[in-house]
């Protein structure tokens, strides 16, 4: 997912046209369009949800729900240059927030904290870099997590991220810098396994 030029688009105009056509077909209930939507966006949606929730099972479920909600709301989607990906990401964002609220309500945070602590951490450091990143991310604010997920894990451009997060591009750049600083501080904390995968 690493790119030399982040967020670069081969042909933004062509992509917009394809997006618009796809949106119309999806709104008309065309099965092939929904198949294409799923193919194109599932990985990004899953990734976004996965790093926000830190639970693969929940991520599976929420990512699937995103497409189900989108399908039900398809007739209400008004394509005016808003990328479909941003629309789906907006749905994902809301579902993640709802899920986090549910967790809080049922005291899930404590449970989650226990579940992500490796067995005897002094003897068994986390071996998955992804797990370490996820743990470090938990120290960030919701917005900081979101901007890092969109920009770095999903490789969204500043412009796309701004659309999804409903902020200006300047605000995204600023939030991005603060998020990276927070992330860097989190990774410097004792207990964070810098050598990750061993």
């Amino acid at each position: 997912m690493k790119h030399l030029v982040r967020g670069e688009r081969e042909d933004a105009g062509e992509e917009r046209e394809r997006d618009e056509s796809l949106a119309r077909r999806a709104a008309a209930g065309e099965a092939a369009a929904w198949s294409e939507l799923f193919e194109t966006h599932y990985t990004a949606i899953f990734g976004f949800v996965r790093y926000r929730l830190r639970s693969p099972e929940e991520a599976d479920d929420i990512a699937s729900q995103v497409f189900e909600v989108a399908y039900r709301r398809a007739d209400k989607f008004d394509y005016r240059g808003v990328p479909i990906g941003a629309w789906l990401m907006g749905i994902a964002r809301n579902l993640v927030r709802d899920q986090i609220k549910k967790r809080v309500r049922r005291g899930y945070e404590e449970e989650l904290g226990e579940s992500v602590t490796p067995v005897q951490p002094d003897e068994a450091p986390a071996v998955d870099l992804k797990q370490d990143i996820s743990s470090a991310m938990s120290n960030l604010t919701e917005d900081q997590q979101e901007v890092l997920s969109l920009r770095f894990l999903l490789d969204k451009s500043v412009a796309d991220t701004a659309v999804v997060m409903e902020r200006s591009e300047d605000a995204i750049k600023n939030l991005q810098r603060r998020a990276l600083a927070a992330m860097q501080r989190a990774m410097m904390q004792p207990g964070y396994l810098q050598d990750g995968a061993g």
Binding site: G47, D60, L129, L180, M183
Partner: peptide, 23 residues
């Protein structure tokens, strides 16, 4: 820090691909 996050994205893609059939 950004590079570290980038590195983890590869495993994310693998995980996403693994969940896709069921989804």
């Amino acid at each position: 820090a950004a590079n570290t996050i980038d590195e983890s994205a590869a495993s994310l893609a693998t995980e996403a691909a693994a969940t896709m059939p069921i989804a």
